[in-house]
Design a protein around this nucleic acid. Structure first.
Lengths: 316, 316
DNA sequence: ATGAAAGCGCTAACAA
DNA sequence: TTGTTAGCGCTTTCAT
């Protein structure tokens, strides 16, 4: 029994001859270790929980792919749960993940609600936030510098003379927007001495939201929009063109994620570029270290970002 | 011990008074049952394995969302594994899922290779194919009638006078293409007495593939394309327009999945419409029945499909 | 309606 | 290097 366990787990204290013998029997009996029993005995499930707002969203899907690839590399499996960014669902999902004894958690969401934060703190299993900020910096996370990125992108919009640049996010009151993107937007305005007007703040979480939003954008005399979600940006751009407002001549739109969608639209979308796959991959790698109790050099990693000016803006 | 188990599992043979008492202690001690131990003892993990080619693909992502929602509804969790449609990875993934003692499996992929088929047959746990055909009809599956759908869509292309309609799929030799879509394409040609030309068969699995493919399409005098993947279709359409070939005036393109992408492009993409979310949802529902040993009315379900003629084709 | 006890299939000391 | 023995934290008969 124990020797078989040693062989199966590649423990080195086994005589090559017996190992051979065991392997043969394993093959012959088509023996496959029961990971559940293993998990109970060893207190490790080699499974990590992943909370994602929505797999259908290309931004999060890209991160998820990075997460899964690295998980696979380190022999972990992923339990994926869609939360819709809803606090209730997040808490519920976490509870079942904890019951399932996952070894770690990757959390994606636009904000860490107090309830979720409490769940994390109540357990001692490691958590890493992927593409999700933590203003209180309680948990390891991997992101880009959203403040700086938005600031640079809005700066471009201001350079082409726009005086009324709208800021569009999924939910304005989410930490990632309130504490990072919005300040970046405001900083850019300030450096161009353009007054801040909260009438120019809008919410749109997906393509249809964006498409519908155009009327309001126009009603408030916006001539450009900095959007935090590629789907919504595509909706705004198409919505404008369909309403006879030419992009970029009469209205410029810039977005944030550089998902494939930004290349599919016509005109193509100018965007912040970020290493989506890597955000997920690095987060998972970080989690493996945490689960192994390895030394962590950085709990908070900021990956490099860039800018891509394409057809939806007038800038070069 | 046993009584606590009964309470936690909502077994009815418990006196209300003791139930109350147990519940209180559960609350006070913040007791949370260990699902791993539960799984070992009961031989049920309330976890199902999901094999997906790539979460990043909007077609499969949509199915995955349907799967997860229904899983949640029936108290199951999902272990998601990306396979890239690669047989090796599929087999490997299945083995780890079996080790983890999943209660069932949802398989997505363009084909059931013999190796995968053997894995399924070697285990007695239920499998349902979602958006994935099984020509041998060995396993329960949910799909649409791809043959009929492609035939109808190609028929539209032929109606507008195209004599050289290309057929573009991710991998031509996959069962879903070889046994369903291609025959549908050929049937349409035949009914219009247009000769079949295998020079008009092409492969493109994603946006970039499609974009690149344009040169070949043009070289072979194709004037329209029936594409089996929305991403590739978007690539072809943009590629054509970028090369100065106007869609739909000089080249028509029709696609297959009606993902959001078909609305984002300009012109918008004409497409077969299928209930993506439902394909996943119904598959998962079917799996829950199988796992419960319920009676199954249909092992093979075909969901209704439709047609949406938009801007990328000349038809009404 | 409740408790006692066996055991699910492993890992992890501990001996030998 | 190998075997023995406890558990891991539950569910599930079987008594009571």
């Amino acid at each position: 029994m124990a020797t078989v366990s040693r062989v199966v787990n590649h423990n080195h204290n086994v005589k090559p001859a017996t190992e051979k013998k065991v392997m043969e029997v394993v093959k012959r009996l088509n023996y496959r270790p029961n990971d559940v029993a293993r998990g109970l005995a060893s207190k490790k499930t080699t499974t990590v929980g992943v909370i994602i707002p929505n797999v259908t969203n290309s931004y999060f899907a890209a991160l998820a792919r990075g997460i899964d690839d690295i998980a696979e590399m380190y022999q972990y499996n992923i339990i994926l749960t869609n939360s819709d960014g809803d606090e209730q669902k997040e808490v519920k999902a976490l509870n079942t993940l904890y019951s399932k004894q996952v070894d770690g958690i990757i959390f994606m969401g636009n904000e860490l609600s107090p309830a979720v934060r409490d769940e994390f703190k109540a357990e001692r299993i490691p958590v890493v936030l992927a593409g999700s900020v933590d203003p209180q910096n309680d948990f390891p996370n991997v992101n880009i510098d959203y403040r700086q990125a938005v600031s640079s992108q809005v700066d471009q919009l201001l350079n082409t003379g726009n005086q009324r640049v709208a800021f569009v996010a999924g939910r304005l009151n989410r930490a990632i927007n309130q504490d990072f993107r919005l300040p970046g937007y405001q900083a850019a305005l300030q450096s161009h001495q353009v007054p801040f007007d909260d009438q120019l703040l809008f919410e749109a979480a997906n393509y249809d939201d964006g498409y519908e939003l155009c009327d309001q954008l126009l009603a408030h005399q916006a001539t450009a929009a900095m959007v935090s979600n590629d789907d919504a940006a595509a909706g705004i751009m198409n919505g404008m063109n369909d309403r006879g407002v030419q992009v970029p001549e009469q209205f410029e739109v810039a977005t944030s994620d550089n998902t494939k969608i930004t290349e599919m639209t016509r005109p193509t979308l100018s965007t912040i570029t970020q290493p989506l796959y890597d955000v997920g991959a690095v987060a998972m790698r970080l989690l493996t270290k945490l689960m192994d109790n390895d030394e962590i050099e950085q709990r908070q990693v900021l990956l490099p970002f860039g800018m891509k000016q394409r057809g939806s803006t007038k800038g070069a």
